[in-house]
């Protein structure tokens, strides 16, 4: 819980520093998904620490050295908020001044993310995919547990009529909002990653209230697992298509006759790929953790 509050605070801090996209992500990831995962795994392990114990001496030594090195490093830094700092000078002006003409997307973060440094984002999608794969292979469940979980509706949730009704109204809105964030990332803050997380959050809320079985009829786990791979393939596929059309890898200019249109199409497609992978991975991870809980219940 405290972790969630910490994340919300960080999000507001990011907004204060003009990083709306980052704030958006931190709010959805930190406050949403990672808190959820923490709670899910706390449910699986002992809730209480036996007693707090530290090995403080070594740790203190290490952090003193690290801290000293960091503070020493700050001494020659340009001041906070200084517009003439080298970080604002060398590479960035081109993004700010030319991206409208070169890419035609007002949200500069999106154009840097998806086009100038699109390859980083492909790597990032692959990282998410790797994590999903790791969780899948670690928390592998037998098909028996899967069957048992089908009919399980959380008992305490059945009584929460108000919660269920409100959620029924909320969930479609959440999913639509996710799609809005997905396709509006060019103009406002947002994009594939945030949209994927929000979409996943909608599905997770649904699962929590109506049970795993119902949710899995709508979002079949096997299909979701394939979707995790599909998103990555889609992103890289766009890159390969660019190569086949005569450009460099991920050079969207060649996708259409007009470079700007090509960029638009390319960004749209790769953001969609990111969104699909992220949503699918988040849902898979959540399913896996829930199955684990179910398994524990049955075996105890």
């Amino acid at each position: 819980m405290l972790g969630g509050i910490y994340s919300l605070l960080s999000a507001s801090f990011f907004i204060d520093l003009d990083a709306v996209d980052v704030a958006f992500t931190e709010a959805s990831v930190g406050a949403g998904i990672s808190t959820l995962l923490m709670l899910a795994s706390l449910k699986l392990v002992n809730r209480y620490e036996r007693k707090t114990r530290y090995k403080p001496l070594l740790a203190l030594g290490v952090i003193t050295i690290t801290g000293a090195l960091l503070i020493y490093g700050t001494l020659d830094m340009p001041h906070f908020g200084d517009p003439n700092a080298p970080a604002q000078q060398h590479v960035v002006p081109r993004y700010l001044n030319e991206s409208m003409a070169e890419i035609g997307v007002p949200n500069v973060v999106t154009s840097v993310l998806a086009s100038y440094r699109g390859y980083d984002t492909l790597g990032e999608t692959l990282v998410i995919f790797t994590a999903g794969l790791g969780v899948m292979s670690l928390l592998l469940v037998s098909s028996r547990t899967k069957k048992e979980s089908k009919n399980l509706v959380p008992a305490d949730m059945r009584q929460q009529i108000i919660l269920r009704v409100v959620a029924k109204m909320m969930i479609p809105l959440i999913l639509i909002f996710a799609l809005y964030v997905q396709f509006h990332g060019d103009y406002g803050p947002g994009g594939g990653f945030q949209a994927g997380v929000i979409f996943a959050a909608g599905v997770i809320l649904y699962t929590m209230l109506f049970g795993l079985g119902v949710s899995q009829r709508a979002f079949h786990p096997e299909v979701i697992i394939l979707l995790t791979a599909f998103g990555v393939l889609m992103y890289a596929g766009v890159g390969v298509a660019c190569m086949l059309l005569g450009g460099n890898f991920l050079d969207y200019n060649v996708l259409r006759h007009d470079p700007i249109h090509g960029q638009h199409l390319g960004i749209l497609l790769v953001e969609l790929g990111v969104g699909i992978t992220v949503a699918a991975v988040m849902i898979t991870i959540f399913y896996k953790f829930t199955w684990r809980t179910v398994k524990h219940k049955y075996h105890q």
Binding site: L122, F129, F230, V232, L233, N248, F249
Partner: peptide
């Protein structure tokens, strides 16, 4: 000309394909 990127992209594309 595309060899440098193919070097990385080939296994990159292959990994998700494995799941299929």
């Amino acid at each position: 000309a595309h060899l440098p990127v193919l070097q990385v992209i080939v296994p990159l594309l292959a990994a998700p394909l494995c799941l299929f």
